[in-house]
Design a protein around this nucleic acid. Structure first.
Length: 470
RNA sequence: GCCGGGGUGACAGAGUGGCUCAUGUGACCGACUGCAGAUCGGUUUUAUGGGGGUUCGAUUCCCUCCCCUGGCACCA
């Protein structure tokens, strides 16, 4: 059974065959750090995190590269507004992004590459494009001449003559064609700049991705991903740049795009003022619940974000984690001899795993994969009442360990947090104090004795009870 | 205008040319229960936007219409 993925270039699911054996190179367009990380970012990067984890689970040796657009119009516009140097602003929001990703369990990225660390490579590509007559210089600016690239539009399937130029952005009059895009922008007062053969300036938006990816991956690689808003013009521009610069095509074998997060059916956007920062969600919900909510929908489908939907996800997720907690609790007291539910549970684990991997193989269908896990937990609960041996409980938990590693979920179930232990023991101590004050020394001694049996040492001091673990 | 994505039960959301059933949430009934919660069983449920075609058979394939939604030059 092979792994299939939806390739935007083909507008169809294709069998996944890496260019080089089992080695896979994946590039995903990262963020422009100029504001808080929002749930749209979370969606896309959690989706690719699952994809990366699954590819690795499938035995591929994956290098996952993500860029960071740390010099860009939006940063340069924002910085003076908040009166912070542009590079500090970028650092601040990059840190915010990385922290958010950590909270969400996004651990699969091998390298975050900042655009400003690749200025020489960017200049080299612009020079190459000028030399090949794919670009032209006007004053200190360099533009890509799209009429020189025959394949322009092959990813997005746009026809140049059908475009409404300037629908949202003013067209620079110096361009030979309104669709031409900037490779290099000349220095403007107060803006950061680097020396180049065309004078001081900074890179255009699209060129950093090709400079970074060609530097690390060479002229061709396997997977390029991003939100579907970047298909046009960004990815179209990347293809034009890379294929013209290297002379090799296709630049990327599989293009993968995530669906958008929408709010009440509408796209999330600055202009609509309906952007939801991840920070805001995490004030109310566990990061793992947010991750589950995102994984609960297949990566290409749009997600309508509402707190009601998040609440539903929380309940649904609780159904699984509750079962896992129960299994873990039962395991500590379970016996090795066979239980009446063993056979059925083992069969259910096998068929759930088969369904799970089949769903994941089909373009990473996490929704369908999760359906198999929900069914498995229901069977588990029924079988638990019939009786389960320690062996089958372990098999059940091991299976979820595997699913959890792939989906980046069920992490909190593995070990109770320090905070929780702290709270629980604190609660027992307060109950014991109440008992002591009420003269019920039988109860208070029993609490101390039981805690001691669990390895919690308890000492009464003049400042109240103190406890420590062995 | 051009290029995309999508309409499935009360809601969210998979899959499938025929098969008992996606899955989850909600509501209701029953079981369990000191209370609460969790859980189990059942119901809501003859679910596939309208019309036409292909077919023995269409939710699935084709045509058409309607509706929602994204992109159209610096947005994950």
């Amino acid at each position: 059974m092979g792994l299939k993925l939806y390739n935007t270039l083909a507008r169809a699911k294709e069998e996944f065959e890496p260019l080089q054996g089992r080695r896979v190179k994946m590039f995903v367009c990262g963020i422009t750090p100029y504001d808080h990380t929002h749930i749209g970012h979370a969606r896309t990067y959690v989706a690719f995190d699952v994809i990366a984890r699954y590819l690795r689970h499938r035995g591929y040796s994956l290098f996952y590269l993500q860029n960071v657009t740390d010099v860009d119009d939006r940063i340069l516009t924002r910085a003076p507004e908040v009166d912070i140097p542009w590079d500090d602003l970028g650092d601040e929001y990059l840190a915010d992004y990385l922290k958010t990703m950590e909270a969400l369990g996004v651990t699969s990225v091998n390298l975050y590459a900042k655009a400003t660390d690749y200025i020489p490579e960017i200049i080299e590509q612009v020079e190459g494009l000028l030399a090949g007559d794919y670009a032209y210089q006007v004053d200190g600016d360099v533009f890509y001449q799209i009429s020189s690239f025959q394949d322009y539009g092959k990813l997005s399937r746009v026809k140049l003559e059908k475009l409404r130029s300037g629908a949202r952005v003013e067209v620079d009059k110096r361009k030979r064609n309104p669709q031409d895009f900037a490779l290099w922008k000349s220095r403007k007062p107060g803006e950061p700049h680097w020396d180049s053969p065309w004078g001081a300036g900074r890179p255009g938006w699209h060129i950093e991705d090709t400079a970074i990816s060609v530097t690390h991956f060479g002229p061709q690689y396997d997977i390029h991903g991003a939100g579907n808003d970047l298909i046009f013009p960004h990815h179209e521009a990347e293809i034009a740049q890379a294929e013209a610069f290297t002379g090799r095509k296709p630049f990327v074998k599989y293009w993968m795009h995530t669906g958008f997060v929408v709010i009440k059916g509408e796209r999330m956007g600055k202009s609509l003022g309906n952007i939801i920062p991840v920070k805001e969600v995490l004030e109310r919900y566990d990061p793992e619940v947010l991750r589950f909510f995102l994984v609960y929908t297949q990566y290409r489908s749009p997600i309508d974000f509402t707190y009601e939907a998040l609440e539903e996800a929380r309940r649904a997720y609780g159904r699984i984690t509750e079962a896992l907690e129960r299994a873990r609790a039962e395991l500590s007291e379970a016996r090795e001899e066979r239980g009446d539910g063993d056979e059925e549970l083992r069969g259910a684990i096998a068929s759930a795993s088969s369904d799970f991997f089949e769903a994941m193989d089909d373009d990473f269908n996490t929704r369908d994969a999760l359906a198999a896990l929900f069914s498995l937990t229901t069977t588990f609960r029924v079988d638990l009442d019939r009786g389960l041996s320690a062996g089958s409980l372990r098999e059940f938990l091991d299976a979820f360990e595997t699913y959890g590693t792939i989906l980046g979920l069920f992490r909190g179930v593995a070990a109770p947090s320090v905070d929780l232990i702290d709270g629980l023991i604190g609660l027992l101590l307060r109950l014991r104090e109440d008992a002591r004050r009420g003269g019920d020394y039988e109860a208070s001694d029993r609490i101390r004795k039981e805690l001691t049996k669990l390895g919690v040492r308890l000492e009464d001091t003049s400042k109240g009870p103190r406890w420590r673990l062995p």
